[in-house]
Every structure is written in structure tokens, then in C-alpha cells.
Design a protein around this nucleic acid. Structure first.
Lengths: 120, 120
DNA sequence: TCATAAAATAACCATATGGTTATGCAAGAG
DNA sequence: CTCTTGCATAACCATATGGTTATTTTATGA
């Protein structure tokens, strides 16, 4: 059963709307992790994490393996491409004078990143 | 009261997770529209549309005006930039593999599926 | 075989979400 | 003034979401 494109987008955006799940995805960019490892930064219970993982799995954003007693999660960022593609249609509406000031915007972005780095 | 960056992301992704709201945003790229105009493509009631608009407004994705009896909505795509910036960090996890290893990955996936099928 | 560890599942709870119908209210139009 | 239009708001409902604790499943290891 193949998920409809719209339903897939629903699931992806919905999965990304929770800060815990976004943190889990960010963590997974550093490599696969077991449920307990993913749970470590949080105060919530293990079943809560398992629920979040199920949401991420339904959105196609992670895949599960079996390794010993663990079920490590692996990032699958592919569905994010769909979300980005949808958002790209709006780029012209937030990047005023897209063509001319492209470079300026890049500069601003870099400045912001630098400032954030300074704060840590 | 300024919304926290994370809360803002929550609100944006959450707002985008509904197909009706995405359709409304797409419609607004063609210009401002009244509630009735936005309602036209759908079968749902007017209050339902008003609720969706409230969600979009809380996420900062639209702004409301007052014009005669109408309260037209205007697209404000700026908060989408934040979402795209967050997603950009994951680009490397879906983009690079695409070109060179597309076929290889498909092969691996097929092998895995085959193995799983064998186990059942 | 038995104990332990990792994670899933069940059952439950409070709140959020997405819809409805009914009603209220402000701004033209007659 | 009164009527109508456009929308907001209220009240309600069913289902979804995000958390909990308790229990079960699965795999390792003694």
C-alpha cells in the first residue's frame, strides 16, 4: 500500500511539529541509536520515546533494525525532500527580490549562524 | 510577547501538516482572499475555514486585514524560511546519495526486503 | 532453566484537533 | 430602521495526541 503524496506530506510535517521528535532526528544525524540512547537527553518515560519513534517511522523519517535486544533507529531523510520541495514554491514570497539580493540573504544567514555560535 | 524559536517551528510545521491549510496557503500565493473566497474550493463549513485561518495566523503564516465586511487574508511566507533552514541541515542525508548510489541503495533495499520475506 | 535488559504493548488520562450547528455582530444596502 | 452579507464565536462531538504506569515480549547471559 503506497501512501498518497498528500498524506505523506501530512505525516512528515506533523512528525516535525514536535520538538522531541526534531531533537531525535537531529541526534540521528550523528548515527544510529537505540531507544535508550535516544531517551537519554529527556526526562520522559521509555514508552513515550517509543511512541515518538512510531510517529517518525510512519512518516518514513526513520527505519528500525534489530540488533541484539535493541531496535536501533536509523535516519531516513528522504521524505524531507518532499517537504522542502513544497516549501520551495513559496521561496519567492519570503525572499524579497529573490534574484538581486540572493547574496545579501546568504550573508545575513551566515551572520546569524555566527551569532548563534557565539552564544554557546 | 515573542514566541520562542522552537515554539514557532512547532506552530509552523503543525500548521503545514493539514492539506486544507496547505491549499489555502497555495491559493494565497495568487493574492489576498476573503474567507468566502478561500472556502470556495471546499465542502466544509465557514467556521471550519475560520478555524484553519486562526491556526495559520498563530503560526504567523498569514495576516488579516479589514476591508468592508471582509477580513481578507494575506500570505506571510517568512516563517517558512525558518522551517527550510531547519530542514537544510538534513540535506546532506538525502541529496548526495541520490546521484551516485541511487541504484546501489535500491539494490540493498531489495535484498533486505527479500531476506525479510524469506523469514516469514 | 532462570534472571535480566531492552523495547513493545496495553490501558488509561488530559488536552488538542477538526469538524459540526446555532448564534452574535459589524458593515453596507434598501 | 431593517435586512443581508461576511465573518467570528460558542457549544458540542468524535477522534487524535502526548504523556503516564503496568505488563508483556524478546533476546542475552549465568
Amino acid at each position: 500500500m503506497v501512501m498518497q503524496e498528500a498524506d505523506q506530506l501530512d505525516a512528515v510535517f506533523s512528525a516535525l511539529s514536535d520538538p522531541t521528535r526534531r531533537a531525535i532526528l537531529s541526534r540521528l544525524t550523528a548515527g544510529d541509536a537505540s531507544v535508550n540512547e535516544l531517551r537519554a537527553p529527556f526526562t520522559m518515560s521509555q514508552p513515550a520515546i517509543s511512541k515518538h519513534l512510531k510517529v517518525l517511522e510512519r512518516a518514513g523519517l526513520i527505519e528500525r533494525r534489530v540488533a541484539r535486544q535493541q531496535r536501533p533507529a536509523r535516519l531516513n531523510a528522504a521524505p524531507m525532500a518532499q517537504a522542502v520541495r513544497w516549501l520551495d514554491d513559496f521561496k519567492q514570497f519570503w525572499a524579497p527580490s529573490f534574484d538581486q539580493f540572493d547574496t545579501l540573504l546568504e550573508d545575513l544567514k551566515r551572520d546569524k549562524t555566527t551569532r548563534e555560535a557565539d552564544n554557546e
